[in-house]
C-alpha cells in the first residue's frame, strides 16, 4: 500500500507539481527519496533562489510523516543554518500528521513558511531575533545568503 500510495503521489507531483516546485527522484530505483527544487517565493527575501530539499518517505508512509530537509543553506528562523537544514513545521510533527495529508500540502506549507516565518517556533535563534527586531536587516541578510548559496 505504501508503494502504491507513494507512486500515486509521485505521479501527481511529476505531472502537476505545485507552482514553483520541481520534483524528481534522487535515484530512479527508489521512490522513497525525492529531490525537490523550490523557487524562493516572490515577495520574500528568498526570491530568485533555487532551494534544494530532500524528502524522505518512511516505509510506514502515510502513517508516519515524511522527513524533509533543506539541502541548500537558507537563512530562516525555522530552518537550521547548517548542512542538515532541519526545519520545524507543524504539519510534519507526528502528532499533527494525518495520513490524508499529501506531499503537495507539505510543499505548499514550506513555501508558506518561507513567505511567513514563525519566529516564536524558531530553531535558528539569531535569525529569529533579527526577524523580530530588525526586519530590514533580516531581509538583507536573507537576500545575501540566497545569492550566496541558492543560485
Amino acid at each position: 500500500m505504501t508503494q502504491k500510495r507513494i507512486s500515486k503521489e509521485l505521479q501527481e507531483c511529476l505531472t502537476t507539481p505545485p507552482a514553483g516546485i520541481k520534483v524528481n527522484l534522487v535515484d530512479e530505483g527508489n521512490i522513497h527519496n525525492w529531490n525537490i527544487v523550490m523557487d524562493g517565493p516572490a515577495d520574500s527575501p528568498y526570491v530568485g533562489g533555487k532551494f534544494q530539499l530532500l524528502l524522505v518517505l518512511p516505509t510506514e508512509y502515510p502513517f508516519k510523516p515524511p522527513k524533509i530537509n533543506f539541502k541548500t543553506r537558507i537563512y530562516h528562523p525555522n530552518v537550521t543554518f547548517d548542512e542538515h537544514g532541519s526545519m520545524c513545521i507543524g504539519i510534519l510533527k507526528s502528532d499533527s500528521w494525518k495520513p490524508s495529508s499529501r506531499i503537495p500540502n507539505v510543499l505548499t506549507a514550506i513555501q508558506q513558511l518561507l513567505l511567513e516565518p514563525v519566529p516564536d517556533d524558531a530553531v535558528e535563534q539569531g535569525a529569529a531575533q533579527k526577524f523580530k527586531e530588525d526586519r530590514k536587516a533580516f531581509d538583507k541578510e536573507a537576500r545575501d545568503m540566497t545569492k550566496k548559496y541558492a543560485k
Binding site: I91, A109, E116
Partner: peptide
Amino acid sequence: TELPQDQHLHTS
C-alpha cells in the same frame, strides 16, 4: 477534500 486543513495553509 482535506486541502486547506493545516494551520499553515490557512494563513497562506
